[in-house]
């Protein structure tokens, strides 16, 4: 990553660069709709099912909650709805097809019909693609990168993700202690 870009953004928000839509969503307080009868606003129901499985493959449920528990796919639909231009929305929807295209090519099935190993292999192919495309065109975000950064930011900014045990949630970090035993720090870090 471009060091200058990292430093610039780090002084602004979080310490890493995000695409404009994701950063806007994060700063704009984007959050997933937790309603029982949720219906996606920009993507179709089918696309939402696919997206949920992609997110879950990126952050699977282990002894801590997964991306589906944190409703990352809903977060992403919300993000795309509110923070993407019409062109970006269309691109997002058409790029999403890549996951099924690759799955059919490799396993003759759509992505959600694959087992978890096969799903991971598809993500492997697409993450390599994302790496290469980042090198060739810094201004365009590959669909894998878009979904990954939105999954991670959606996860850690959700209550389930923040309190699920992956990190220690400290809404207010508390007093400043200048000298403490390092072993007492644990994995506490805050957004």
């Amino acid at each position: 990553m471009d060091r200058r870009e990292v430093l610039r953004v780090s002084s602004l928000i979080l310490g890493y660069s995000l695409t404009a839509g994701t950063a806007a969503a994060l700063l704009g307080g984007c959050k997933a709709d937790t309603a029982r009868d949720w219906i996606p606003r920009t993507i179709s129901n089918k696309e939402a099912d696919l997206l949920a499985e992609i997110c879950e493959t990126i952050l699977p449920k282990t002894d801590t909650p997964g991306a589906k528990d944190a409703l990352c796919h809903r977060y992403i639909d919300e993000m795309v709805t509110n923070f993407y231009s019409d062109d970006e929305k269309n691109n997002f929807k058409s790029d999403l097809k890549l996951f099924d295209d690759k799955s059919k090519e490799k396993h003759s099935k759509i992505f959600i019909a694959l087992n978890s190993n096969e799903r991971e292999s598809i993500l492997g192919i697409l993450s390599d693609e994302a790496k290469n495309s980042q090198r060739s065109d810094k201004n365009k975000s590959h669909i894998f990168s878009t979904i990954k950064q939105a999954t991670i930011s959606g996860y850690f900014t959700s209550e389930v993700g923040a309190k699920g045990g992956l990190c220690e949630f400290l809404p207010v970090p508390g007093p400043f202690k200048g000298c403490i035993d390092y072993s007492t720090v644990g994995k506490a870090y805050v957004l």
Binding site: Y16, S17, T57, I58, E120, L123, S127, K148, Q149, Y189
Partner: peptide, 12 residues
């Protein structure tokens, strides 16, 4: 924080 792996290729 958790942002450091955003640009990496890892997952799962």
């Amino acid at each position: 924080g958790w942002g450091r792996y955003i640009a990496e290729a890892n997952y799962g």
